[in-house]
């Protein structure tokens, strides 16, 4: 059976992993290559780098980080944030990214998704959607959640898939950073309508939130960031709890044997 995935997200700026609130007060928390390796060793199923560098000069730095990461990381790596046009996709994949995720650039130019899927295959095109509740719709936002659009997240997700996206990375802006759990209504609303895997993002505070994302949110994967970087828990601990609740994540057999 296909195992629900636990994906670790690292914000990368100018070649370093940073942490902050709403892209402000960023502080350095380490080397992405080392941290990615550590999370693989803990049992992470995938790594996502979100490039939060503002400048275009940082693109070379990002490619270098991806290249160095791919030399030692043997789980899938998705890179987002650095893709502004179709021409940015090839170099990132060549450097060692398995998938690229696009958000604002896809809203500005939806053709980007089609071109990426045609050239490199749907499996490496992730549509990243940031959404927040606004009256009766899930409104999409771009530019790190700062700019509202006219798009409804469910309809936009369907269009992304039609255009060739192979996966949806769905972030609830309201929940992001709150650690009170994923937005299950939003996650289920999108997951029930699209035919590709949906990654729940925004709001992970403890293992039970991941369980709910899989069971009630119908997510194929759950993205975790802050609680790991702050040392509040580990991937191993999260997975151990999921296994106790009967969720067969990767590593279950080994952990069950260890528990005796």
């Amino acid at each position: 059976m296909l195992r629900p995935r636990v994906i670790v997200c690292l914000d990368v700026k100018d070649g370093r992993v940073v942490k902050g609130t709403q892209f402000k007060n960023l502080r350095d928390v380490g080397d992405p290559v080392e941290l990615a390796q550590r999370y693989e060793a803990e049992g992470a199923d995938e790594i996502v780098y979100l490039d939060v560098s503002a400048s275009s000069e940082s693109r070379g730095t990002l490619l270098d980080v991806v290249r160095r990461t791919a030399e030692t990381l043997f789980i899938p790596l998705t890179v987002g944030g650095g893709v502004r046009s179709a021409d940015d996709i090839g170099p990132l994949l060549r450097a060692g990214a398995d998938k690229i995720s696009v958000n604002s650039a896809a809203v500005r130019d939806p053709e980007l998704l089609s071109i990426g899927a045609e050239r490199f295959g749907s499996q490496c095109v992730v549509a990243s959607i940031d959404a927040a509740r606004d009256n009766n719709i899930w409104r999409c936002f771009t530019h790190g959640g700062s700019k509202p659009t006219e798009l409804d997240a469910v309809a936009w997700a369907e269009e992304c898939v039609e255009r060739g996206a192979g996966e949806i990375l769905l972030t609830s802006i309201d929940q992001d950073g709150a650690r009170t759990g994923y937005n299950l209504d939003l996650t289920a609303a999108v997951a029930d309508r699209v035919s590709v895997p949906v990654i729940a993002s925004g709001g992970a505070g403890e293992a039970v939130h991941l369980r709910d994302a899989f069971t009630c949110g119908h997510a194929s994967a759950a993205l975790v960031a802050g609680i790991l970087h702050d040392g509040l828990t580990t991937v191993t601990e999260l997975k151990s709890s999921l296994i106790d609740w009967g969720i067969r994540v990767r590593g279950s057999e080994m952990m069950e044997a260890n528990k005796g």
């Binding site: 059976m1 296909l2 195992r3 629900p4 995935r5 199923d45 749907s122 499996q123 192979g166 996966e167 035919s195 590709v196 895997p197 194929s220 994967a221 990767r250 057999e253």
Partner: peptide, 24 residues
Amino acid sequence: AVVPHMGWNDVETAEDPIFDGIEQ
């Protein structure tokens, strides 16, 4: 229903030396 088939899945293996040293 969901395509691509994306993620970690169990693999049943036959006796073949390409799988040497792998239990599961």
